[in-house]
Design a protein around this nucleic acid. Structure first.
Length: 883
RNA sequence: GCCCGGAUGGUGGAAUGGUAGACACGUUGGACUUAAAAUCCAAUGAUCAUUAUGAUCGUGCGGGUUCAAGUCCCGCUCCGGGUACCA
């Protein structure tokens, strides 16, 4: 049989579609396996070769699990809200829904040509009102939930106890109190504004150079009323939940860093001339004796009381300057600390000494208490500041294990030491505390005990994680089910979902940075039954919203009554394996986990975590070329000669490098082209054969040719019935077949697809060498090839006379009795160097092996008449003679 | 700066502390062909020597543990990703 993939592949794709081969039923009697891809944003550019990498991996596992008897849930959908469709609408007037529909159709078509076994009846689309009805519904749940810190869980807002003193103040105070507890709230927020996208963005979307990750333009600070989510309430739970997840350690670390838990203490400092204390947060209460000044952030609420009249002018000037700094300025000035003295002094509670209070923008209002005690001798930032403003540096921790030069500098206050050591100058007869000689750990706990006993400090935990800015000034997103009434009341509607997007003709933003929805006249205004007028929320939700919970909707995608049927959810959740790119390590995965935990607390989902096992596929790069000057050269201007590369026009030799695929480098690979030239099975196989799934690796067309050659050989051999014979199978073939069954199965379980394919190749090579195999062998080969190259496998399966699809044929079981050997060929080494081989019976005792080795004629050369010091015999491994 | 990864032939990559380089690409030689492509067969880490054959060196660098290290430990170099005044 010639390998006509262009005929085989459409044939089987049509068969699977027609027979709904991959439709998933809720058959609770079977063990389930939920395997999920990160669903794509359907861009106008279509699929790139990075998409099929993860999709093929999950498809292989899905097909394998089905053959192993699992009920497999393997769905696909579209994360289809987003900026590009809206920008296209502004330019051309084409409604984003039209563009989105077109792009989804194209993605679906492309994905179908890859032969991926999705249950298309479960396809979802985040922009479908039937879908976002439930995104809005979850928002109302967040709004109506408060976090009970005592129980450590979210609870319905109706169960929130109202303190008596709040009750006494009346309804307005109660409302205010409740709104401060909700997980979703509407408030003034300092936000990042992107003038180019005309929208705010979350902290997470702003890169460290102050640019917007989506468009690259600089963002600015702005004060706007926005929706925010109180994700920090779940910080501890989000942190602890990571422990039991089978996730890459790197991703867990990134989430841990992002959550940023730190333990320390809050300490109150008395301020001279004021009754109110200044509270600071520090992770190093042990260094209180070394505090020589304090710093408050420019936004500190006590600023006006703290600043003395003499200093008011220069402090105000400084605050003004700091507030105008863009993020870029802040980073650029990162190394150069700025600040001014407030004129006020505080009293260090541990030794009664007077220290100055400064204001500086290296202290952030959003973290801790917005004020610090500065210990320049033992904190690098404080040290830099102190050096610049000539503030004393008092060393109180002897770095006794450091090298002598460093130690001298630290003791003299000329260098900073943040590591462990032994305290000096750390006692006070006045306050009665003495930690001299202790180490860091002992010092911290002793000082905290002392602070708590004196009532001037408490041990405290802080997180870096901030409230999540959850609204955007865009059209193409989920509308908030929210109405702002003329009397100032804000209501969240729950009973008329979905709140659909109005049809617009124009998609330009509204006045003053409002979303385009501000122009939607009829839609915008509402009137209640009492004639009160209201205005709908014009912000929309960020793209994260739809992707936060989509895995739950696949479970019961057509349910109009409920978000899903709990019985079905209970069966399918959690997701057993989730594969996608590492770029979502923090944002998407953290946000999803947060929503999921809230839904869990409310009893809506049955598991605490959504994704049991996570795996990141690596990026697929491409070869590119670089001239001697370092300038990149487009791939179509490069020719190869004798393994070297030359510029076709200048003749200059260029260097081959590995880079991201980009239009400018002309090295973008389009999966459609690969499918057309080599077939989907070859594309699938090559993407898996390139290397470990989680590695970044360059695309090489010759590699596709290689695996395509393998499929061609397999097809010509196993597809030729002349080679398929009756009778007993050859012993060598039979043995290798058992080994291959085991290897291919194990490698799929462990996501080591490259070596699994290699095993299939090895088996094919042997079968071809033998020239014939039995039908039983051929059928097993078709089965174990099926997850990787399903089209070819189905074709072979049918050729052998099977009338049903191979998709649910049972995975073969290896007969391990065929693998039992009666002898083992030992490599015999002398002083670690292998010199010859020696076959010994499997159960030969060690002394017999030793005798045989030493008596062996080849051994004499290496023994050279000497008596070995030792003979190491590792059964079924190796023999080492030590001379 | 800090936190994670990684470094193996000409190339992509294999190797529970136990024969380094599976499998594939590329290259070379051969078969088939008028020829090319396709296909098939063989060789292919480097160096030295050669009569089949053999020896030496080899997993980024320097040390160490071990009978035995690509693999474990210590100290570096380079590359990739994340993060950044979080007190």
């Amino acid at each position: 049989m010639e390998y006509k993939f262009w005929e085989i592949e459409p044939k089987w794709q049509a068969y699977w579609e027609e027979h709904k081969t991959f439709k998933t039923e809720n058959d609770f009697s079977k063990p389930k396996y939920y395997i999920l891809d990160m669903f794509p944003y359907p861009s106008g550019a279509g699929l790139h070769v990075g998409h099929p990498e993860g999709y093929t991996a999950t498809d292989i596992i899905s097909r394998y699990k089905r053959m192993k008897g699992f009920n497999v849930l393997h769905p696909m959908g579209w994360d289809a809200f987003g900026l590009p469709a809206e920008q296209y609408a502004i330019q051309t007037g084409t409604h984003p829904a039209v563009t989105t529909q077109k792009n989804c159709d194209n993605f679906r078509r492309q994905i179908k040509t890859l032969g991926l076994s999705y249950d298309w009846d479960r396809e979802i689309n985040t922009t479908d009102p039937k879908y976002f009805k439930w995104t809005q519904w979850i928002f109302t749940k967040l709004y109506n939930t408060w976090f009970d810190a005592e129980q450590g869980k979210g609870r319905p807002i109706s169960e929130l106890p109202i303190p008596e003193d709040v009750k006494a103040e009346g309804d307005a105070a109660i409302k205010e109190y409740i709104s401060k507890k909700r997980l979703a709230y509407y408030d003034n927020a300092q936000v990042w504004w992107c003038a180019s996208c005309k929208t705010v963005c979350a902290n997470e979307e702003v890169l460290t150079d102050g640019s917007h990750e989506k468009c690259g333009h600089q963002v600015k600070r702005k004060n706007l009323k926005q929706w925010l989510l109180r994700i920090p309430h779940y910080a501890q739970r989000l942190l602890e939940g990571l422990d039991n997840l089978d996730w890459p350690e790197g991703v867990k670390d990134m989430q841990k860093n992002w959550i940023g838990k730190s333990t320390g203490a809050e300490v109150d400092f008395k301020l001279e001339g004021l009754t109110e204390n200044l509270r600071v947060y520090t992770t190093r209460p042990d260094t209180l004796f070394g505090a020589t000044y304090m710093v408050i952030s420019p936004e500190h609420p006590m600023m006006s009381e703290i600043v003395t009249a003499d200093n008011k002018e220069k402090v105000e000037k400084y605050i003004q300057a700091a507030s105008l700094k863009s993020d870029l300025d802040r980073t650029e000035l990162n190394k150069e600390k700025t600040g001014v003295f407030t004129g006020r002094h505080a009293i260090n509670p541990i030794n009664g000494k007077q220290i100055p209070v400064w204001v500086a923008d290296y202290v952030l209002m959003g973290y801790g208490t917005g004020a610090i005690m500065a210990v320049p001798a033992h904190d690098t930032r404080d040290f830099e500041f102190a050096v610049k403003f000539e503030i004393p540096v008092n060393c109180i921790l002897d770095p006794k294990d450091a090298d002598e030069e460093t130690r001298e500098l630290v003791l003299a206050g000329k260098a900073c030491w943040t590591e462990d050591g032994a305290y000096i100058n750390s006692s006070s007869s006045e306050t009665g505390i003495d930690i001299n000689g202790l180490n860091k750990k002992e010092g911290i706990s002793k000082v905290i005990d002392w602070l708590e006993a004196k009532g001037i400090g408490t041990s405290t935990i802080n997180f870096k994680l901030r409230d999540w800015l959850f609204s955007r000034q865009r059209y193409w997103g989920e509308p908030f089910p929210v109405i702002h009434w003329e009397d100032g009341e804000v209501t969240v509607v729950e009973d008329e979902l979905p709140v659909s997007l109005p049809d617009l003709e124009k998609f330009e933003p509204g006045e003053g940075g409002e979303s385009p929805l501000a122009n939607a006249g009829d839609w915008l205004t509402v009137v209640d039954k009492n004639g009160r007028k209201g205005r709908r929320e014009t912000n929309t939700m960020p793209q994260w919203a739809g992707s936060c919970w989509y895995y739950l909707r696949y479970i019961d995608p057509k349910n109009d009554e409920q978000i899903f049927d709990p019985k079905v959810e209970n069966y399918w959740m959690p997701v057993d394996l989730y594969i996608g790119g590492a770029e979502h390590a923090v944002l998407h995965l953290l946000y999803s986990r947060f929503w999921h935990k809230v839904l869990f607390d409310l009893g809506i989902v049955s598991t605490e975590e959504p994704f049991q096992k996570l795996f990141n596929q690596g990026m697929i790069l491409a070869f590119a070329y670089e001239a001697q000057s370092g300038a990149k050269v487009a791939s179509d201007l490069v020719e190869e000669k004798d393994g070297k590369y030359f510029h076709t026009q200048t003749g200059e030799e260029v260097r081959q490098i590995v880079a991201k695929m980009s239009k400018s480098l002309k090295n973008v690979i389009n999966p459609d082209d690969v499918v057309e030239k080599y077939g989907a099975d070859s594309l699938r196989l090559y993407e898996m054969f390139m290397g470990p799934l989680d590695d970044t690796k360059p695309w090489a067309e010759n590699g596709v040719k290689g695996v395509s050659g393998f499929l061609g050989r397999a097809c010509r051999f196993f597809g030729n019935l002349d080679n398929i014979v009756e009778g007993e199978e050859d012993k060598e073939v039979l043995k290798l077949l058992q080994q291959t069954i085991i290897k291919v199965g194990d490698d799929i379980e462990n996501l080591k697809f490259n070596t699994g394919i290699s095993a299939l190749m090895v088996f094919n090579n042997l079968a071809m060498k033998k020239g014939k195999v039995t039908k039983a062998t051929a059928e097993i080969f078709a089965k174990i090839l099926a997850p990787y190259a399903p089209h070819l496998a189905e074709e072979l399966w049918q050729l052998y006379g099977n009338t049903d699809t191979l998709a649910y044929a049972s995975w073969p079981v290896a007969d391990t009795s065929l693998l039992v050997e009666d002898s083992f060929e030992y490599p015999v080494s002398f002083n670690g160097k292998v010199r010859f081989k020696l076959a010994m019976p499997m159960d030969a005792p060690k002394d017999e092996i030793e005798q045989s080795v030493l008596a062996h004629e080849l051994a004499q050369k290496w023994l050279d008449g000497k008596t070995p010091k030792k003979v190491i015999i590792v059964p079924k491994k190796i023999i080492n003679v030590v001379l």
